[in-house]
Nucleic acid binder design. Structure first.
Lengths: 251, 251
DNA sequence: ATAGCTTTGTGTCAATTTTACACTATCCAA
DNA sequence: TTGGATAGTGTAAAATTGACACAAAGCTAT
């Protein structure tokens, strides 16, 4: 199910936009959902951009970010967090950028402040269709992204850093995994986000000691090797943990 | 030296403002520099507000925040960091708020997004004068603030939380202290920011082990008790430390 | 069916870090 | 000179971290 622009009767605010860094995890590495602006815009700048749009005057910033996410992927109830506001006066400097902005109904003359968000989606919940609504979106491994349109690369960096800090404090990584996952997958996830290797045994010991995972009596199927046990995140146990004032996972 | 509005020839952006949470430390507790909007505005809402203003179209967000700080206190080169963007459509709901906004040249009808910053100033560098430029500003202990105008209380909370997290990662606390300070003052500072007691001996041991302080051969003077040794923050030593990938002070 | 490939899952020991805790030293003021 | 206030210091037990290697389980190809 895809997209349905709401609030057509409200005014777009020409000065404020939101951009979303939509993180996914392909069980190997961290990825981001990018939009291909097509060959037209590519003459003078990178084709790939973060999804984003201007905000409506009757929605708050979080709502706008959720709307952008919903319009692109059809997903709701997704972990979402603000990264911050970006807005140099010369943020949009290329002719191609102006053209692109016109195409999404933005006023290319005005100075635009953008509020960046990052969201964590279980990648299995959204597979871009070649035929999906207008936009040409695709998952791209973070490590392969060297440039983006506008100031989006800078925004991506900031989002990665924020995610990195946040995961040391709250177990938000689970939002990137399917409901049932293996410890190895979780391990890989932490390594990709923290961008450093973590000793396997020490990682498992640390996670298990936290006691916020439910171990299922179920194994992986169809893998060409010893199948792993599956686990679920245990929200209740985590809430108990936070009651104690716990706010440091020590990575 | 006080204030001199620059960039008068540039346009104010009616949709975007910055607000500054200016933190100080009176050697006892964390404080914030607030503006008293006066009795006129107080009929329907709290008198005290964070300093802030609309941004000009030719300045970026950081510049705008620095300008607000400069106009109010005359201070430059101050530690400054973005907290985030705030902007519910109904952010400004009270009649008194609208009046107040008019008085600072803001367009009270328009929906305003505000970008919040926090700054850390050595409190001794700015003592509000009763006769200071127009605005009636004063240091208020954070613990005594129960409400603020607009959504400024919410912003303050966010700023406190950001500061708390940040100080666990970078030794920015020194920006709140005079150049020469005692370990007890630093200790108190960390306690106020983290909002929890820290064992004196353990704190001192931890700080000293980091080896980012220069111990001066100089003592406190005029205190009615055993005078403390004075220390300076050693920027070079800290830079060395970060080279090692260090990013966790373990509080 | 077997051999080989791949990933899972596990324990220990040494080093480091954390926590809890109490008394003497030094200066000022009365 | 005494009393009041804060500075400054050490240790022992407990917890955490970091480094490290091999057998078990399932799949695949022969």
């Amino acid at each position: 199910m895809q997209h349905n622009p709401k609030k057509i009767n409200s005014e777009l605010n020409p000065n404020v936009s939101v951009d979303c860094v939509i993180f996914g995890f392909d069980l190997e590495q961290l990825t981001v959902l990018l939009i291909d602006r097509g060959e037209i815009s590519s003459a003078f700048g990178p084709r790939m951009a973060l999804p984003g749009n201007l905000i409506y005057d009757n929605e708050n910033l979080d709502m706008a970010a959720n709307r952008v996410l919903d319009e692109l992927t059809g997903l709701n109830n997704i972990y979402l967090e603000q990264v911050g506001a970006f807005g140099d006066p010369d943020r949009i400097h290329k002719e191609s950028d102006r053209e692109w902005l016109k195409s999404i109904r933005a006023e290319p003359e005005a100075r635009v402040i953008t509020v960046a968000y990052f969201t964590l989606v279980p990648m299995s919940d959204y597979k871009p269709q070649a035929s999906s609504f207008a936009k040409n979106a695709d998952w791209v491994p973070v490590s392969e992204i060297k440039e983006l349109a506008f100031d989006h690369f800078e925004i991506l960096q900031a989002a990665k850093e924020k995610l990195k800090q946040k995961i040391k404090i709250q177990p938000i990584g689970f939002n990137l995994l399917p409901e049932k996952f293996t410890l190895s997958q979780l391990h890989r996830l932490y390594e990709s986000i923290l961008d450093k290797p973590l000793d396997k045994r020490n990682f498992r010991r640390k996670i298990q000691k936290l006691d916020i995972l439910t171990s299922l009596r179920e194994k992986q199927r169809g893998v060409p090797h010893k199948p792993s046990l599956l686990y679920e995140f245990n929200e209740e146990k985590y809430q108990e943990l936070t009651q104690t004032g716990f706010d440091n996972f020590g990575f």
